[in-house]
Computed example of a mutant assay.
Amino acid sequence: MSKIPASVLAFEKKLVPSDGLMYGTTWEGRNSQSTPLKLQEKSVRGTISNRLKKSEEGKIDAKIESANLQTVDSCALTPEQDTLKLNFTLKVLSGVEHPSACNHEGFNQTYTQAVTDYIKEHSFTEIANRYASNLANGSFFWRNRVGCEMLEVKINVLNNDSDKNWTFNSLDNDTQDFSNLSNDVTEMGSLIAKTLSGENEFLLLEINAFAKVGKSQDVYPSEELVLDKNSSKEKKSKILYHVNDVAAMHSQKIGNAIRTIDTWYPDFDTHKKPIAIDPYGAVTNLGRAYRQPKQKIDFFSLFDRFSQAEKLENVEEEHFVMAVLVRGGVFGEKQ
């Protein structure tokens, strides 16, 4: 199969989350009062605990004498608060059948036809239900989800023509399994599917999520990537993210959690966990790409065939290709 003829090809993302702002509250008063969480700066004296070089093993006492001084950001609830509140919005957009940039008219026609056929047959139902499940199960809390006593997610539709809302007990919603979804999850999924399929222009959701983690406990905003590796002792070794002095989570991190729906990669039976939708199935914290180009199961190998009206081997490959297009990106063939 020849590669796609379009050298300029880009798709805008169709799931657009906002940053998530973090507040402290109590479980009993979670619906009525909350206060923005501020970052706190700490200076800590640690010990040398990294692996030593062979030449340094005899000098461990001298190493231990040198204190490991660090200045770090932290964030915690107050002694009166036991619950973390996370607030963000999610906009779902239509128009996945139209690239935002494409310099080859013939390709554009075959691609549009392929997506139209997919929508006619599958209506984005499977993909949208998985997005809805990840909203309901609170996976976007990431580390804050671990060890919490209670977890609740409230979702409101903000479109003017709808008053839909749902409340989920997130600990009852599995983060690893997309079968046996509740009626509320599939109802929300149907709204997402109708938007992705083009029946509605957009869908705007507001998410308020609550995790009972315990009084005074640490909570975990996003950590900033420090590109300036200045070794000065006055530089902070950990910088947390905030929006106007309110602790926050990156929109990219929230989006990554929502699109962690790929159970169609070959090693799923061994790994047992869904991975985020990515052209090569990349999981950076494991240093692995689960969709290898050599095996022709990566996005580009499948997309080259799908976009030129060639039938893929199974419906799971079609779901994967469409989920990457919803994610968006630049996919042109370099010349």
Results as ranks from 00 to 15, higher is better:
residue 27 W to K: 00
residue 189 G to Q: 04
residue 199 E to C: 07
residue 29 G to N: 15
residue 258 I to R: 06
residue 127 I to P: 01
residue 141 F to R: 00
residue 41 E to Q: 14
residue 105 E to Y: 11
residue 164 K to C: 10
residue 11 F to C: 03
residue 4 I to A: 04
residue 150 M to A: 15
residue 186 T to W: 04
residue 260 T to L: 10
residue 64 I to V: 12
residue 95 G to F: 00
residue 155 I to R: 06
residue 88 F to R: 01
residue 234 E to K: 12
residue 326 V to F: 03
residue 290 Y to H: 15
residue 135 L to I: 14
residue 2 S to Q: 14
residue 81 Q to T: 05
residue 224 E to H: 08
residue 103 N to G: 12
residue 102 C to G: 01
residue 102 C to V: 08
residue 98 H to C: 10
residue 146 V to R: 13
residue 155 I to A: 07
residue 255 G to D: 10
residue 226 V to L: 11
residue 163 D to L: 07
residue 129 N to Q: 11
residue 125 T to I: 13
residue 144 N to C: 03
residue 10 A to H: 11
residue 215 K to W: 05
residue 38 K to G: 06
residue 47 T to S: 12
residue 237 S to W: 07
residue 251 S to Y: 14
residue 224 E to G: 01
residue 69 L to I: 11
residue 267 D to H: 08
residue 256 N to I: 07
residue 311 K to G: 00
residue 58 G to P: 04
residue 311 K to C: 00
residue 333 E to V: 14
residue 90 L to P: 13
residue 95 G to P: 04
residue 141 F to C: 02
residue 159 N to C: 08
residue 205 L to G: 04
residue 74 S to I: 13
residue 237 S to L: 09
residue 245 D to S: 06
residue 231 S to W: 05
residue 2 S to H: 14
residue 295 Q to W: 11
residue 66 S to W: 06
residue 20 G to K: 05
residue 148 C to M: 04
residue 322 M to Q: 13
residue 217 Q to L: 03
residue 333 E to W: 10
residue 170 S to T: 05
residue 318 E to T: 01
residue 35 T to Q: 10
residue 306 F to V: 08
residue 179 S to E: 08
residue 333 E to I: 13
residue 291 R to S: 01
residue 260 T to C: 15
residue 52 L to M: 09
residue 150 M to L: 12
residue 91 K to Q: 15
residue 185 V to C: 09
residue 161 D to N: 14
residue 333 E to F: 13
residue 203 L to W: 02
residue 71 T to D: 08
residue 67 A to C: 05
residue 217 Q to R: 11
residue 171 L to N: 06
residue 334 K to A: 11
residue 218 D to V: 08
residue 132 A to Y: 09
residue 284 T to K: 09
residue 216 S to W: 00
residue 10 A to W: 04
residue 309 A to Y: 02
residue 92 V to R: 00
residue 211 A to R: 03
residue 93 L to D: 07
residue 228 D to W: 02
residue 57 E to G: 00
residue 243 V to P: 01
residue 324 V to P: 03
residue 3 K to L: 15
residue 287 G to S: 09
residue 232 S to A: 10
residue 208 N to M: 05
residue 95 G to K: 15
residue 257 A to I: 01
residue 331 F to Q: 02
residue 240 L to E: 05
residue 50 N to H: 11
residue 264 W to V: 13
residue 106 G to I: 01
residue 87 N to I: 07
